[in-house]
Design a binder for these strands. Sequence first.
DNA 1: AAAGGCGCTGTGAGCGTTCACAGTAGAGAA
DNA 2: TTCTCTACTGTGAACGCTCACAGCGCCTTT
Lengths: 344, 344
Amino acid sequence: MSRTEQNGAGRRRPPTIHDVAREAGVSRGTVSRVLNGGHNVSPAALEAVQSAIRRTGYTVNRHARSLITGRSDSVAFLLTEPQERFFEDPNFNVLLRGCTAALAAHDIPLLLMIAGTEAERRRNMRYIAGHVDGVLLVSSHSGDPVAAQLHEAGVPLVACGKPLGQGSRVSYVAADDRNGARDMVRFLHGSGRRRIATVTGPLDTPGGVDRLAGYRETLTECGLPVDEALIVPGDYSRAGGEAAAALLLERAPDVDAVFVASDLMAQGVLSTLERAGRRVPQDVAVGGFDDSPAALSARPELTTVRQPWDRISAEMVRVLLAQIGGEDPAAVILPTELVRRDSA
Amino acid sequence: MSRTEQNGAGRRRPPTIHDVAREAGVSRGTVSRVLNGGHNVSPAALEAVQSAIRRTGYTVNRHARSLITGRSDSVAFLLTEPQERFFEDPNFNVLLRGCTAALAAHDIPLLLMIAGTEAERRRNMRYIAGHVDGVLLVSSHSGDPVAAQLHEAGVPLVACGKPLGQGSRVSYVAADDRNGARDMVRFLHGSGRRRIATVTGPLDTPGGVDRLAGYRETLTECGLPVDEALIVPGDYSRAGGEAAAALLLERAPDVDAVFVASDLMAQGVLSTLERAGRRVPQDVAVGGFDDSPAALSARPELTTVRQPWDRISAEMVRVLLAQIGGEDPAAVILPTELVRRDSA
DNA sequence: AAAGGCGCTGTGAGCGTTCACAGTAGAGAA
DNA sequence: TTCTCTACTGTGAACGCTCACAGCGCCTTT
């Protein structure tokens, strides 16, 4: 009966550190020490407290703890992309999942915040300052002032992808876009292609810039001329890929390979090429970038450059936690990998 | 100089309710009343406090508030699907975005928790009890005990999709799967198809069961026999769709339409059909379900049944907040809509 | 034998709020 | 005038935790 009243549907107030202390026959202080690493606690007391915790089903009240420590033991995942891209891009799923899991291993919950509109951005900024220990930032457009604002406010911060524009020392983790692009172009060249075009990403994103740079360099390196007619701007979207391919076919009908800066755009390119009667890969080879699920759902399946999203998320969390712990900002660049399938 | 020290990079401790009270020339109590609705506060005091808040840049310390109120003013989005589905299914993005936005409007942050493994599940359960005001649950498999556990623990809870199996009164929001399926089958029949097959979802999910039920009913209603050879089980994955279609062609080569219980599976069906030399929609009409981005990236573009994800997320949040506010659990079923494209 | 150090323990204070209560002043009713 | 009621205001006491400090034995050293 009293048991039922304590644990049953009655929703009794949860046990506190006092209850545990009484149950274990020690003081609050000792329980607290056990909770925070167990230093300077005798083996007997340690055992007594741990057993009492188990018996009472005690869980630390994080609000009370945060109130005094000033830490919140939580982290925000902040997305400042316009929402469309979030929907379309399957990479975010992987990234989000990875970050959640990596944080969970440290018992740190992830707060998801999306700042599409200006109002949302303001709200999130207000929330973050003082309510969150650090921020995992996903925002590639250089016009985005969020990174600078957070950095200035002294909030520990790790960006996914190199924050373009500002020279300020903010941490980031990124795939090696430039070398990934080089691998792909080198591969296309190696398979005999000579009129290699590219559909770029937005040129106000580091990915867009670096992949294009890799493309240019490799062409020169291979002794091919860099023909500006073969360089078509894209926006990472499927529709953008379709339009870019149409423009490309018009400007350079003799194209025999396209390096597309994202898989989603590559899908669009494939679709335009098909409608134009070009066979892939026989007439035109198509190389993507990301190795997202879109690469597998494309027909033919995409030869692409794999971004190591699992490692990226793990590194982002590692760097962020280190920074929260007082270490200096850091930049991490992770290698990509060429994945051969059917489109090139 | 003193200003700089207070607001600059020095990271002074943030203003508290005391600072605001002093600045406004009132007491803590009055400031608190302003913060919580402003009842029983004179216009003069209200104005003074609001101005003081603006001048000091005060933000309420949610930890302190939570400590005394017992509320956390946060909500968990709990995903107990095995991770693969989360990655593949573009619907989750829309749902997640919708929930985040709807909660943000109430200034409530969303904690993302993923419980793929048993360890993760235990950790999350421990966290949820006492740290979160309510849970938005995404988990369709009936074997999942999480819903029951949470409900028993008295945690306000809204499931996405009807929790199968347990009769317990837990809130949920779902699309009208049965009627959606009926609309599609009726449409296929109306366009002259007579050998209408179906690839089902997993039959331990409510969506799988109800869509199949709608299929069966409508066939009978249209005076068509229900041929068990035309009913092939699927698993909501693209690969599952490919396999199901292969099996179907073997069992019933004369099939002239397929109602597929998800767009992703429909992509797989399309791909198998193409390889088998069947033209879509001329030889075989294909209808999907979800109207996810996958429907648009399919070739031909999928005729499908649109699930109102934006409304689903909004309703989930509404029902959850109502329940946190003390109202009774509720079930909400939202209508679907047939979207005509090229595959049927 | 006294002094010093070390390992362990308990205690008080305080983190920033909200809530219940008590108190004040002014308006209206008797 | 006096009383009551209402609208507003201020004050102490929590909420559950961590942290700094002081105290107490006990072992080692001089």
